[in-house]
């Protein structure tokens, strides 16, 4: 049974469709934009769309983290890198590489249709839930079941920060 267009459920469905469209449009802009800054803007739209997908998947915490980390941190870092390394905003020129033309398009289309066919043809069997997946449950498991990985990720981030500093400082003297 389909909900009425003007009921609360209908509104939820309409917002979902809008966010789905935003995600796809953002992703297409990322791929087709000639200038890097526009690709970055498309990436931000795509990230916000994916964050709203997480919201629809019953995970408001991950949705907020998506906005905070991807839009707030990664996109801003990429923006700084673009300003530093590509200040004139040069249009991308095509080198006539074999892969960048139809071959690349065919490869990507093939992979997409393969994944889509897999998703449509497989017989997914749902299991009974043993908890509600709330923020409280996520926090408890993060510090009990997955505590080791949690600590390892902190070490990884520390090493990444140190490595980034070392690499970016290289050749600064001349």
């Amino acid at each position: 049974m389909t909900p009425s267009l003007f009921s609360a459920d209908g509104l939820v469905g309409i917002i979902f469709l809008l966010m789905l469209a935003a995600t796809l449009v953002g992703a297409i802009v990322v791929v087709t934009a000639k200038r890097l800054v526009r690709a970055l803007a498309g990436l931000i739209v795509c990230f916000v769309g994916v964050a709203s997908m997480y919201f629809y998947l019953n995970s408001p915490f991950v949705s907020m983290m998506q906005i905070l980390i991807y839009v707030g941190a990664i996109a801003v870092t990429i923006a700084f890198a673009i300003m530093f390394a590509d200040p004139e905003g040069k249009e991308q020129k095509n080198h006539g590489n074999l892969l960048s033309g139809p071959v690349g398009f065919c490869c990507a289309t093939l992979v997409t249709f393969g994944l889509a066919a897999l998703a449509l043809s497989a017989n997914w069997i749902p299991f009974a839930k043993i908890n509600d997946g709330s923020v409280k449950e996520v926090g408890t498991q993060l510090l009990t079941t997955h505590a080791m990985v949690f600590e390892l990720v902190s070490v990884l981030l520390l090493i990444a920060i140190l490595g980034a500093l070392v690499i970016a400082r290289e050749g600064r003297r001349n």
Partner: peptide
């Protein structure tokens, strides 16, 4: 679709 577009961008971007 996101994966396919990302892969296409990864191949074509120079």
């Amino acid at each position: 679709v996101l994966f396919g577009l990302g892969m296409y961008g990864f191949i074509t971007r120079r």
